[in-house]
Design a protein around this nucleic acid. Structure first.
Length: 494
RNA sequence: GCCCGAGUAGCUCAGCCGGUUAGAGCAUCUGACUGUUAAUCAGAGGGUCCCCCGUUCGAGUCGGGGCUCGGGCGCCA
């Protein structure tokens, strides 16, 4: 909504972009988005122009047609009323079908029909873009399966579902930047091309300019990457965390937010080869500070989406998942529970619930365990803290018990793990010991070790897959619908 | 990568134990009707039943192989 702006001010803001302005006694044409047209901020009778794509057309023998127009600016469509007196009424208006691009000019008036407050009484309708074969245009005014729409990823944003997802996606991205900025964070753009296997986080995509048909070889017959573009092996990033730690130990509160790549052969509704990840990192902070940060973060993002995209969220609740709105509201209102990993294992072992996988101290929790904890046992989001050191990454801080590291997972009802984080090992000797245990060559991590040699401090952070969060917010069942052009094993169309 | 399921009109699907010309809703086109709301009513057009091989007098239907899609698991965010 365009709150805090007078109708007059709104009008002025757009009048300068209109046609024929500056003539005395002539009211300038105002180009409005559908959202603006429906907002009620434009004085009745103002000459306006709206542009978009036809969703449906209904003809009336009373001498007019109703054209529902969408331009993506909001969930709702604008009803354009086209009188039979238009010169192109029979030749064009009555031939409009779903997907046609039109420019409609006329006056905004209160609607005589039910279902909308305002409508456009058209003086003219231009059709810059026809649909060449209406019968085979894939997007019809009816529900389509997400599976089918994945085959037409270039046209699916024209549906209610993907329009809503796209707007919520944008709103969430902006909400993340706004929230973290408000908390004093700086956005650090860590590299997309990397030469270190950041944390063994997964298989990596190789970046190379070598001629695959004619690879340079060294003395021993191995591929000579010294001849490659960067003079050594290079890959697409699997995480910006290690790089952002350096900026954390200078700017105190930082985050990465960018594309991330995993070359794993994962064929599930929860995995993408290319996705966006958010990784906040805070200095002078321990695991509890990290959990506080994560809780505040999630609640702020969800609040913003509910506030700014109420129209789209109402659609998800109506058509995708009944409790799409209420569970976010419940999430926001619930203080997170915090339990120790060791305690969680005890609870799971005592649970009457039968699990497919056994629970044993030292094993990572399965999705079924995580969901049972959050949904059945606690009934709200829960942070599980301090996991066995053997199942967690090398950079996580060893606890005093010598058996666990300061790692945390945020588990939410409905999905399981939504955030993973940890306090980082800031002690050089401990870090070196853990790297040795993981078989990592310290020579490849000199700059990372330097951070522990020069002004090291306790610090912590977490990682969050953006599309998984979007799946949760929208109530989707497949992550391939949470990103415009999904990349998965065997798929990089479009 | 492993396991399971599904491919029939533009879309969503029905099609029994193998048997005549493969159906419905929506969409499209034509007409009727109407300030209409995924309008309604009537009619019409629209099919390589995913592909190949096999069994059979006869295959959308049964068997084998392949392809594609979906789900579960693993890896993980």
């Amino acid at each position: 909504m365009v709150s805090g702006r007078s109708p007059l001010g709104y009008y002025r803001a757009f009048a300068s972009f209109g046609h024929g302005s500056g003539q005395a006694g002539f009211q300038a044409m105002v180009t409005l988005s559908v959202k603006q047209a429906l907002s009620g901020h434009t004085p009745e009778g103002t000459p306006v122009e709206v542009r978009g794509w036809v969703r449906t057309r209904r003809d009336s023998k009373a001498g007019l047609s109703f054209v529902n127009l969408s331009d993506g600016s909001c969930f709702d469509t604008l009803q354009v009323v086209a009188p039979a007196s238009l010169p192109n009424y029979a030749s064009e208006v009555q031939k409009l079908s779903a997907g046609c691009a039109i420019v409609a000019r006329g006056r905004l008036v209160p609607s005589q029909g039910k279902g909308q407050a305002f409508e456009l009484q058209a003086d003219s309708i231009e059709v810059p873009g026809w649909v060449e074969d209406p019968e085979t245009y894939p997007i019809q005014p009816k529900p389509h399966s997400p599976e089918f729409l994945r085959e037409v990823a270039h046209l699916r944003p024209r549906t209610n579902l993907f329009g809503a997802i796209s707007r919520v996606r944008h709103t969430m991205m902006m909400a993340i930047h706004r929230h973290l900025t408000g908390e004093g964070f700086f956005w650090v753009n860590t590299p997309i091309i990397t030469t270190s296997d950041a944390e063994g986080a997964g298989d990596m995509f190789r970046v190379s300019t070598l001629d695959l048909a004619n690879l340079p070889r060294d003395d021993r017959g191995a591929i000579d990457f010294r001849k490659d573009f960067f003079g050594r092996e290079a890959f697409l990033t699997v995480s910006g965390q290690l790089n952002v730690e350096a900026y954390c130990l200078a700017l105190s509160k930082v985050y990465t937010f960018g594309p991330t790549f995993r070359a794993e052969n994962s064929n599930t509704p929860r995995h993408l080869a290319e996705f966006w990840m958010i990784e906040p990192e805070i200095a002078f902070a321990d695991l509890n500070d990290d959990a506080d940060c994560a809780e505040k973060f999630l609640k702020a993002i969800f609040s913003t989406v509910l506030e700014e995209r109420a129209d789209d969220m109402a659609f998800f609740a109506e058509r995708v998942q009944k409790d799409a709105v209420t569970r976010l509201e419940k999430f926001i209102a619930s203080p997170f529970e915090r339990i120790e990993y060791t305690e969680a294992v005890d609870i799971l072992k005592r649970a009457k619930q039968k699990f497919e996988f056994p629970v044993e101290w030292g094993m990572d929790l399965q999705t079924e365990h995580e969901r049972w904890l959050a949904e059945q046992h606690v009934g709200r989001p829960v942070v599980v803290m301090n996991y066995p050191e053997k199942i967690k990454a090398f950079y996580m801080r060893l606890n005093d018990d010598g058996k666990t590291v300061a790692a945390m997972d945020v588990l939410a009802p409905g999905i399981g793990e939504i955030i993973g984080g940890s306090q980082r090992e800031e002690r050089l000797d401990c870090l070196d010991r853990r790297m040795a245990e993981f078989g990592l060559d310290p020579a490849h991590y000199q700059w990372y070790r330097d951070l522990r040699r020069y002004g090291t401090v306790p610090h912590a952070g977490f990682g969050l897959g953006f599309e998984r969060l979007l799946v949760y917010v929208c109530g989707l069942s497949n992550i391939r619908d949470a990103i415009p052009y999904p990349r998965t094993p065997g798929h990089a169309e479009f």
